[in-house]
Design a protein around this nucleic acid. Sequence first.
DNA 1: CTGTTAGCGCATTCAG
DNA 2: CTGAATGCGCTAACAG
Lengths: 351, 351
Amino acid sequence: MASIEDVARATGVSTATVSRALRGLASVAEPTRARVQLAAQSLGYVPSAAAASLASGRTKAVGLLTPHVSRWFFAVCIETVEAVLRTHGYDVLLVQLPPGGRTTPGPSRTLPPSRPMLSADLLRKRVDATIVLTLPLVPEELTVLQALGHELVYVGGTVPGLRSVGIDDVAVGRSATEHLLGLGHTDVAYVGASLSPGDWAPPQERYRGYRQAMTAAGLEPGEALVADLTVADGRRTVRELLRRGTLPGALVCACDELAIGVLHELRQAGVDVPGQVSVIGVDDHPHAELHDLTTISQPVAEQAETATRWVMEGLRPGARAGGTEPAPRSERMPTRLVLRRSTGPAQARAT
Amino acid sequence: MASIEDVARATGVSTATVSRALRGLASVAEPTRARVQLAAQSLGYVPSAAAASLASGRTKAVGLLTPHVSRWFFAVCIETVEAVLRTHGYDVLLVQLPPGGRTTPGPSRTLPPSRPMLSADLLRKRVDATIVLTLPLVPEELTVLQALGHELVYVGGTVPGLRSVGIDDVAVGRSATEHLLGLGHTDVAYVGASLSPGDWAPPQERYRGYRQAMTAAGLEPGEALVADLTVADGRRTVRELLRRGTLPGALVCACDELAIGVLHELRQAGVDVPGQVSVIGVDDHPHAELHDLTTISQPVAEQAETATRWVMEGLRPGARAGGTEPAPRSERMPTRLVLRRSTGPAQARAT
DNA sequence: CTGTTAGCGCATTCAG
DNA sequence: CTGAATGCGCTAACAG
């Protein structure tokens, strides 16, 4: 385990110079730096992150708070954040925080139905900044996070007072609904917003967009069909609708996974899509095309990349120095209707 | 930023006692511990991971090396490892290392076709143990990893000299093939093994199993159809087979994603599955059922959980103390044929 | 441009 | 069971 002293001795300079040389600070003569680098290399010297962190007060790590790891949106975000951070020499501290009652991975163990309060202790003194992915934050948690006093960016939604990047979820809900209305549908329902407080914002916002579009068209918006966002939830919802005999002519789904479940169960029940029922999703999930799902696509990697870039900018030496608190920016990225064959003209239905 | 000294002062004990009390060491009187905990709590004291690490030589972090984040197998492993480690108070240091030439997430940038050598510098002095997920390791990289001198567990394959947990990939390939042979198929092909060296082991092993089964049945094993493991690769492979007019009667796919792509392209081309062609995959991916895909299921979360448990056991104070290097264990988990409707009896074909 | 000097905040001896 | 003293390996002033 070579230490900085070994390198200093081998090079005939002080440890301070070694430190400066290896970190690429300007104030080192090139020949000196070269010798130091050579010695470090040949000794296999790797700086101790712990020691550097203790001495400098910076950790060179960014916290990544997420409610899920394996769901598409989150997985892509994590992948992107990790890749970008690493090019900057930063580590990612992954913290998975269940959004609510759910089964943990592994042989059937369950967490209590209410998620434990987010404790900032997981992050304090361990990261220089934090990125939060679409985690439903209760006000108290937001306070706790802000109290950490470092860069904080939210991805996949909007949080008052926080810098955030995402899409315009209301507009997405509206566009999806308008697409169906434009096809002549009048009985359009929305699937995917659970109405309990503290729930995911995007589905709720998309539901708002749905209601706006319905109202603007002079139609009565329906109650949201409550469902979580997985394939299984989509299937369950359709089974329920079929059992009750209240299948609408068109369905706006909060996301593609859900829509794929809906589609599958409809087709399996012999319902013609889009002949009898039209279905639209949100995401443009990689599997959406396989199911011929019309959807509103959103750029996920780009959202994560922008958030990471903001964080890196804020961490650049000199930034935020003069008490220049960055204005809470909010960037909404473009979305786009992707036409496939799960939506079609409304049919005159037998009464 | 309360420090351990503040807590010591507030409690009227030494910092050493605070340290011992908060870490739950036995040698502290219960009343003392209670007072310390109370003070720590009310002061909002959180130990500095960096200082603790520097002083103790342990990092309370585990490295997680993975070639992908968003592909199903890896995402589930990451999710599981993170969850289990956190219950033990360990952090996960996620390191994504592209397996070879591939596009990085985000707006179209590409990595050089040959993956950069894994540098142990990313891990050295930063983690107490490492879990490697199905990363094709060249011998030199293996050496480098072992030189870290800490716990090392491999998930999703076998590496000589390394503790590993996975499935019996040869048996999986054999079972899948035997299933098709049992249905009377004789022209069975294998899709998914790229033959370049340093390539993923599981697809290669499954291919071996395929060949064993074919040979045992007195049939000539075919060359593997080269493909990566994504939906797009499956589709591309089928298009190619159709163009050449060499569609076999049955296909063993290296994994479900690939198989789903294969299935989709076949059905879209009007090929009857399983009437004209049977398809089987490996994984039991969550979407497999939607495509009616017959497959060999493997327990992914359980593999990750076992690996994590091994690591935690090795990190327990006292473990590995008496130079008791743990024997390189290898655990193979059970797999199981999941029958759906993508495989069926061989048909007499027109000549 | 480089060296000297102090800590950073804890865990761990070793005494009691 | 508890306290005092030591140092983990580095960075950040401050001098030169």
